[in-house]
Amino acid sequence: MNRFRVEVISCTPNPQQTIYAAMHQDYSESFVVEERDRWPAEAQAGEVIVKRLLAGERGHYGPLEHAMIVFNVGYFPHSVMQQARTHRIGVSFDVQSMRYTGQRVADAAAGKIDLEDIFYLRPVGQYLDRQGKKYTYTETDRAKDLELCRQAALRYQELLEAGYAEEHARGILPFDYRQHFVVSFTLRSLMHFLDLRSKKDAQIEIQQLCDLLWPHFQTWAPAIAQWYASTRLGKARLAP
């Protein structure tokens, strides 16, 4: 799993002040931007949000939608993208399509890049699914699967050389080819995504995605992240 990557492209530079301003405008007589010099500092704004908006689980999460963060997510298997886009989470994705981006598969077939940079296979080990089924994924099993990936890459290369379109040739690839994507969250939708996908019965690869998103949340909006960690993280309390 060490190929998985999450990097921040951009984000609201003062998310807790931004949320504070939205919250404050809800009940303020004034045009709140004219009071900007009297807004609490970023750290203090986070404390105010926790106290007035989040504590007590009042459910008023609208102001959290004014803070945005955009991530570049890399090297995750296609199954993660499928699960990430399931349920109404209120985010925007732009995803490597495999209609125009197949050269790396041909390069792997030719031995120019590591096959596992293109295809994802789970690590060897003991597994337990959501229905309680236990099984062992062995080195022998994994070697067989990796060989199937190699054969699929070779066939893909043959199809491209024969003039096939990438969108046609991709049909013979293993399901879990790796995809990169850009995803944008509001702070509210980021919390909702973590609610859904950080729980222990989620797909293990998407749990790893949550693990990589989490430090960025902590750095970006620390007071809110601290509250979230103590009240919601890993508890599957849905739809803030």
Rank of each mutant, 00 (worst) to 15 (best):
D107N: 11
L159H: 08
Y20F: 15
A225R: 01
A162T: 06
W39K: 01
E167N: 13
E147H: 13
R130Q: 13
T138N: 04
A43H: 06
L54W: 04
V183A: 00
A229T: 13
H60K: 13
K200P: 00
N14E: 14
G62Q: 12
A108E: 01
Q207W: 09
H60R: 12
D129C: 05
D114I: 08
L54T: 04
R142W: 08
E167G: 10
K199D: 04
P240E: 11
E65K: 02
Q179C: 14
I204E: 15
G125C: 11
P77H: 08
R5I: 06
W39Y: 09
Q126V: 08
G234N: 10
Y228V: 05
E205R: 09
I118L: 12
A236N: 11
N2W: 13
G171Q: 15
Q179P: 00
C149E: 04
K134L: 11
Q126I: 00
R99I: 05
D129M: 00
A109W: 02
V50K: 03
P15H: 09
W220L: 07
Y177R: 00
Y61N: 14
S198L: 05
E167V: 10
V32R: 01
Y156S: 06
L54D: 07
E167K: 13
S198F: 06
A67K: 01
G90H: 12
P174V: 00
Q82T: 13
S30Y: 14
A43W: 05
T136E: 09
T138H: 01
A67H: 03
V73S: 00
E35Y: 06
F31D: 15
V50D: 10
I69Y: 02
P240Y: 11
L173G: 03
T186D: 05
V91F: 09
Q44N: 11
L196Y: 15
A41V: 12
E7D: 12
T219Y: 14
R104T: 00
E167C: 09
D211P: 02
E47M: 00
E205M: 08
G46K: 02
I69W: 02
A143C: 06
E166Y: 14
H192R: 09
